[in-house]
Amino acid sequence: MKNKIKEWLKSGQIDIFLGYKTLQGHPLPHAFGKDNLEDIDTLITGSNYYPLEKIATKLVAEKPDIKIGMITQDHSQRALNVLYIWNQLDPENIKPLKGDGCSSNLKEHADDSHREAGKSGQFKKQFGMNTHASIEEAEIFAQQERFQRWMYEFQKCIKCYGCRNICPVCFCKQCSLEHSNLIGTGSLPPEAPIYHLVRAVHMAGRCIDCGLCEEACPADIPLRLLYRKVNAIVTELFDYETGSRLDQSPFSIIGESITLKLKPIAAA
């Protein structure tokens, strides 16, 4: 694997390779370049996962023609697909290299990643939403109780934007979550449930269920469960499975289907 990466870099097939390296005892994302090929010997593989795809979008925003290689896991491919669809990355310029990180099927909660949220304590189970609940389990409660439980979860939010910042498919230049006309500013917790519902709605047709947001959330809000439901609805209503195909999200289409092709604007 390391030789292959070296070869890619040497031959100019890629300009940079995104992988992981241990720094001060922590596996951290790292960009390997061609000017220091020995560096690649320090590349580590395993179940580390940071949103490398997001790092790639930032690189491309700076240098649109850069060719990027990167270590991928199952969900990374879905993330890449979503980013291709939304024109954030060009598949021509991305060279994925399958890592061996995914301990799929081993954990029932994180079905395609090693990540697993911490266990929900007694109190959370009694008054909030169990992070490990399935959609069906979350729907057992009657409307009023559901509302109470979700509100208990949402009011813990400290508005750190961690869920958005870590998300591989969040790339908008202007984020609704920071728009003062949409979400009240200046108080904590942020306006619940609108803050979380706005993010949930925006994850429709986008979220690829990688679980990073839930892992990043310091308030232990079962975000993944919420977005799972969102995308279950999208699949049910629009027959669209986020990340598994390369067609446009139903939410970016006005009308039933795309009838016009994108054309460059003619020079005046």
């Binding site: 409307q143 449930p193 209503l237 629009f238 139903p250």
Partner: peptide, 17 residues
């Protein structure tokens, strides 16, 4: 499409009570 989008919202709101 509007129907589906509203259905989407209805189901989401239902999910959170």
């Amino acid at each position: 499409m509007t129907i589906k989008r509203i259905n989407f919202l209805q189901e989401l709101l239902e999910f959170m009570g």
